[in-house]
Design a protein around this nucleic acid. Structure first.
Length: 481
DNA sequence: CGATTTTGACCTGCGC
DNA sequence: GCGCAGGTCAAAATCG
């Protein structure tokens, strides 16, 4: 069950005995207070409890040996006291008894102290084991998350392939109509929808009935579809779990802030690129636009963002967006963001007037609705404690795991090097994920971690970072206006 | 010394 | 055809 732990602890049995755990915990607290001295009876109970617990972890042999000796000594003392009390004066009896019982008492207490130290040591060991088990479970959970995201991506690619097959049959005109319908049905399209320049450019450049050319065209079109994420960050770039290399920087028209161009360097030939630019209206808002699909396994931290952006791009270009059901199946998080009336105007926006079809996820709003996704994200932003490790850093060991084993969930690995903070962070993310079976919370956790990480970096030098939300524009101005 | 960033040149598409 | 803007390339500079 736990080959990665590397020690023969039967934690399952320990966990079955919840009463024992409770007692042990309370006793740990009890002994942590040096000012309150335990009575012999309490110590005895403690020993019994520890014996019960330690019998599960194969270190029980010392306790049964030492404990009876201690009790035997006490019985002998009592016998002596009775016997000498009949033959000596009260005073001498008191003196003798005082000296002998003192020594015995000291011995007994010394033994007990020794035992207690051993117990504490054992408990520390077990505590460590439990921590490692928790880390292991977090690890497994993240691996499962990775697997799930991979399946979603596969499904999305399958849908794209189906759509591509339709094109091969010779329905390029139909595709044009579908693409236009996507925007219209989502209520974000305007009159320019049917003139979406990127689609038309792509369409005009691709001859029909040529599968290879059409495939390339589809991929090119996929790469044209973009997902823009607006987030409040003072860092020059949000770290999203991927490795990026800057390959250019340009001054864009209408924005005094330069636009930086990055490409993914996690795999040779990965087509994913992103642009990072500060919002002209509010320079505290960082706009990151993703383009393309990764051609390699992703670390969990990058999975959340990548699956969402990839799904968004896929939805933009496949027929799945023509129905809310299809949208919901493809990516519930985006579906809700786009279809939910309480969110659509503030969180996720489709831009048809831009040269490229773009979904904008706006994470800079504050909405007083506990049920909407945006608020869930804001909760992630605001509630989590500061000074935590950036998500991309804590995910690094997991990335290494996925790097070596791909989606092999059985590839266990010791996690001794993990500090408590990353483990807690993973736990926070896991907790966020488990509150919602879809990727809403995944994205929220990932992005909040990203922002926290960057804000923390900034806070090291300037603590003025304020994660609270201001108003912002809802349409991406990033990809082509 | 290899990886990354910087930055000017170059390419491409589009509007006039 | 020309100019503009977005995007990319690649040599030089910088960094760890």
């Amino acid at each position: 069950m736990l080959p990665g732990l590397g020690f023969p602890v039967n934690l399952g049995r320990v966990m079955e005995s919840s009463d024992s755990n409770r007692k042990v915990l309370s006793e740990i607290d009890f002994f942590s207070n040096p000012t309150s001295k335990p009575s012999a009876q309490e110590i005895h109970h403690h020993h019994q409890d520890v014996k019960t617990l330690s019998s599960n972890i194969s270190v029980k042999k010392e306790i049964p040996q030492t404990q009876p000796v201690s009790r035997c000594n006490l019985d002998m003392n009592n016998g002596l006291q009775l016997h000498t009390g009949n033959t000596r004066s009260d005073q001498s009896t008191l003196d003798d008894h005082g000296v002998s019982s003192d020594a015995d008492d000291k011995r007994a207490k010394s033994n007990e102290l020794k035992q207690l130290q051993e117990e504490v040591q054992r408990m520390n060991t077990e505590n460590q084991n439990l921590k490692e088990m928790l880390s292991h479970m977090s690890n497994n959970y993240t691996a499962l998350q990775l697997h799930l995201a991979g399946l979603i991506q596969q499904r999305q690619q399958h849908n794209q392939h189906d759509h591509h097959d339709l094109q091969v049959v010779g329905k390029s005109e139909e595709k044009k109509q579908v693409t236009a319908r996507q925007f219209i049905e989502l209520g974000s399209g305007d009159d320019e929808v049917s003139n979406s320049s990127s689609d038309e450019r792509t369409q005009s450049a691709s001859p029909n009935n040529d599968q290879s050319t059409t495939t390339a065209t589809t991929e090119a079109t996929m790469r044209k579809a973009r997902v823009s994420v607006r987030a409040r960050s003072e860092a020059p770039m949000i770290s999203d779990g991927c490795q990026w290399r800057k390959y250019g920087q340009k001054m864009a028209k209408g924005n005094p802030c330069p636009r930086a161009y990055y490409r993914c360097t996690m795999a040779v030939g990965c087509p994913v690129r992103k642009q990072v630019q500060r919002c002209a209206e509010d320079k505290t808002i960082l706009v990151t636009t993703y383009e393309g699909n990764h051609n390699h396994p992703l670390p969990p931290a990058a999975m959340a963002m990548a699956s969402t952006t990839s799904a968004a791009a896929g939805m933009l270009l496949s027929g799945s967006m023509s129905s809310p059901e299809g949208l919901m199946k493809m990516n519930p998080m985006l579906a809700r963001a786009i279809l939910n009336p309480s969110c659509s105007s503030t969180m996720a926006t489709l831009s048809a007037s831009a040269p490229f079809p773009t979904v904008t996820l706006d994470l800079t709003h504050n909405v007083n609705n506990d049920n909407n996704i945006n608020n869930a994200m804001l909760h992630q932003f605001q509630v989590h404690r500061p000074n935590t490790t950036p998500f991309h850093q804590l995910a690094q060991p997991l990335y290494n795991q996925s790097k070596f084993s791909g989606l092999q969930l059985s590839q266990d690995r010791p996690v001794h090097q993990q500090s408590s903070t990353p483990a807690d962070n993973v736990g926070d993310a896991a907790k966020a994920i488990t509150t919602d079976p879809n990727f809403t919370a995944v994205l929220a956790a990932a992005i909040s971690s990203i922002i926290r990480g960057n804000n923390n970096q900034n806070n090291n030098s300037a603590s003025s970072s304020n994660p609270h939300i201001l108003n912002s524009t809802s349409i991406s101005s990033f990809s082509g206006n």
